[in-house]
Amino acid sequence: MGSLIGQGIVGIALPALLALVLNGLVLRSSALTESRKWPLIGLIVAGCFVFSYSVIVGGITFPPREATHWLPFIAVGAVVFGSILQFTGGIARSIVRLIAALATAWTVLQSQTFGRWPLLISVEWLVAVTLILFATSRLIERGGAARGTPTEILLGMALAAGFGGIALFLGGSVVLGQICGAFGLVLAGLTALTFFLPPAHLGPIIPLIYVLALGSLLLSGSLFSDLPWPTSGLLWIAPFGVLIGPPAMPLGKNRNVRLLLRGLIVLVVIGLALVALFLIVQPNSNEY
């Protein structure tokens, strides 16, 4: 059992710590412009996600055969697509975002829907998930841009991913739960850093990684494990709790109070998600 704890430290705590240090160095760097910092931070976040996945699952499967095998590729792909988004505009930007959302929806859904469910229902699912991923990444990006700093929306994402890990763990997949928990910790570290080293804007890369990675994790949990759909849905909308009300002032005590209140709104939605989980699947402690 000791080595199981060791795996938790290497697979969850180490990538979170590594991301905290590296992201801190990038955010502090004066040699890098803001637009150069986010692709680097995106690479660090995705790299730590892949590292965590690799340790917890026991390696990366190539070529991927199952929906969850795609997770590391989705994280890295999100950095690539996010970087393209950062340097494009207009209709091209929407097309790139749509391709990223469609590719992610396809990788998760193709094994479970097409060939098993009626074609029309499968297509409906593909379209619905694509649109949700597309719209959410856009909303988070805009929400982050509308605030004085990206800290608020990052806090919402970190809380949703962290508690998503707990929900997945209790919903029947220890592996997905650990990966999601590690992702939440990485985002929590980034949130803390932006509190002390506030960047001017969030950019599209982190929201895209968050949306595609967490979306894949929650979808996999609900499709292949016992994570209830209402829990997934509530966790999905939870970060938007921080967007309620007028934008906070960039500095000052008032900002901290508002940040705390918005964090509480996110926690209430997450609490509802966990209540739904306990009411629907009544999880027991995982026993091996």
């Binding site: 199952e66 929906a67 997949s173 592996v175 996999s220 499709l223 494990s225 027991n284 995982n286 026993e287």
Partner: peptide, 19 residues
């Protein structure tokens, strides 16, 4: 002989029974 463990065994961590 353990419902909680069976849930994990059926899930994506082990048998991935749905896929």
């Amino acid at each position: 002989n353990s419902a909680a463990r069976d849930k994990d065994l059926k899930g994506p961590d082990f048998l991935n029974a749905k896929q």
